[in-house]
Structures are given as structure tokens and as C-alpha cells.
Amino acid sequence: MNIVYERRTDKSLHEAIQSLEESLKEASFGVLWQLNFKDKLAEKGLELKDDFIVLEVCNPKQAKDVLEKNIHVGYVLPCKMVVRTEDRKTYVGMTSPEKLIGLFDESELKDIAKEVEASLKKAIAASI
């Protein structure tokens, strides 16, 4: 079970984040929050070799739909996307909404998760 979907891009970290945010907006997703792990760990005196930025993203309508079907899905919301670097290469990825929501074993939720995952994969493809 591969829970991570990731693609490499020739863009810089900041270009990839900006491009991803634009692609997400076109797909009706908003970025709710962003965490720069490298900077956060540096504040604590710890060094992380590569950049690792987490974006928590949400499509409000789809979030409402799944929460109304099963409030416990809120434990895996919002969707997490990552823009990171490794060996001077930039990667854009996400955790699989389909796999995460699949843990709840409800067919109605799985259909929405498939739609969300397809939209997010399309946003990644458009951003790289």
C-alpha cells in the first residue's frame, strides 16, 4: 500500500510552492496552513538537511460532504501536501486521500476520496 504520491520537478522549492498553490486554487482547493519543518526545527536548534514544507489543503464542499457522512474522517483532514528538496532536486507530493479515507471502509466516502485524489494529482501535474 503506497500512501505517498510524489513527482519531481525542475522548479525551485519556492517556484514549486507558488505553482502548486495556483493549481490548487484552480481546482477549488485552498491552502489552510503551511509549515516549514526546516525552519521550525532550526528555531529549536536542530538542523534538517533538506527543505520540507507541508501544506494543509482543503476543498470546503468535499470536506463538508465527508464530515456529514462520518464525522471521524475529520481526524485525517485536511489533506496534506508536501514540497521538499533532496540532493538539490525538488519534489511535490501528497498522502493519498483514497488510502486514508479507505481506512473507514465506507463506499460513499471512497467515491469522494477518489475525486479528491484525482483533483490533487491533477494539481500536482499542472504545477510541475
Rank of each mutant, 00 (worst) to 15 (best):
D10E: 10
S12R: 07
T9W: 07
E86S: 14
G93K: 12
Y75E: 11
L120A: 11
L67Y: 01
D105N: 12
S127H: 00
K99S: 12
K122C: 05
A118Q: 05
E106K: 14
M81Q: 08
E56I: 09
H14Q: 05
K99R: 15
A42F: 03
S127I: 01
S127R: 00
L13W: 00
A126Y: 01
D10S: 04
W33K: 10
L109K: 09
E117S: 13
V31Q: 03
L120D: 09
W33D: 07
V83R: 01
I124D: 05
A113W: 12
I112T: 00
G30C: 01
K49I: 03
Q18C: 08
A42V: 02
K122Q: 04
F29Q: 02
L67A: 05
G45R: 10
F104R: 07
D51N: 08
K114L: 11
K121N: 11
P97V: 10
P60A: 05
W33Y: 08
V116T: 11
N36R: 01
K49C: 05
N2H: 12
E43K: 10
C58R: 04
S12C: 00
A42P: 09
T90C: 06
R8T: 01
Y91W: 02
Q18N: 03
Q18F: 07
I128H: 05
L77G: 13
G74T: 10
D39M: 15
E15W: 02
E22K: 12
P97G: 13
K38R: 15
I17H: 10
V57E: 10
I3N: 15
R7M: 09
K80R: 15
K89P: 08
A16L: 02
E43A: 01
V116K: 13
